[in-house]
Amino acid sequence: MESVIKLHNVSVSYLQSRKGIHSLKDFILKASFIAPFQKHRVLHHIDLDIKKGDSVGILGPNGSGKSTLLRTIAGIIHPEEGTLQTHVRISPLLALGAGIELELSGYENMRIALALSGNYSKATRTEMMEKVSDFAELTNEQLRMPTKMYSTGMLARLSFSSVMTANPELLMIDEVLAVGDRGFQKKCMNRIHEIIENGATLLFVSHSPGEVEEICKRGICLKDGKKIFDGTSTKAAVVYNKLFD
């Protein structure tokens, strides 16, 4: 199988303001003109080779760099060191509340989400919109309402559906399944399986080893920005559970 994502020795750092400086006032009072920012390394020398059609679960405690890893692959963050090669159409990262503008209606948000993810063209517009609203199970009336009136579950349905109905080559999911009700979760699981069967690649961040085992064949475990395990998802779940013993 050909590699679609290849990370070689990738390290990522964030720029953080030193000494908790978040205002110009602090900046002047604490007189840190010389180096107001410091680098904080979040990912250390990650090597990763993901083949076409892989389904990879990413497990790890809070703050271990899971979301950062996804964002790096998505090209939202640039690695400080190392090389990243992607040979796949990148679709947006699916995270809770991503890109939802609360003042706008469901329809407007849908249109913007489709456009931003590069799935918008005049020809397919109506068809796509219909597919999305069908999948989200939101009524016409609900979709006309401003999304600030939505429940958390409805918001998740909306952002989820905008990505899921397009045929992504690479699906990246960052802990969003937990929000919808059981029915919607099931539907999403089915759709994820369908997408994988169509030959897409999946990167799935979760805190539930059970979900990872169910969806993914391969599992990766991160801790403090380092990859501590890469193997089958069953073994990854064991490693993950051991971290908390």
């Binding site: 964002r71 998505a74 090209g75 939202i76 990148i90 947006p92 990262l93 699916l94 995270a95 509340g97 991503a98 890109g99 939802i100 931003l116 993810s117």
Partner: peptide, 9 residues
């Protein structure tokens, strides 16, 4: 912020 964090544009 939310768009910047999730879309690669």
């Amino acid at each position: 912020a939310f768009l910047i964090k999730s879309f690669n544009i």
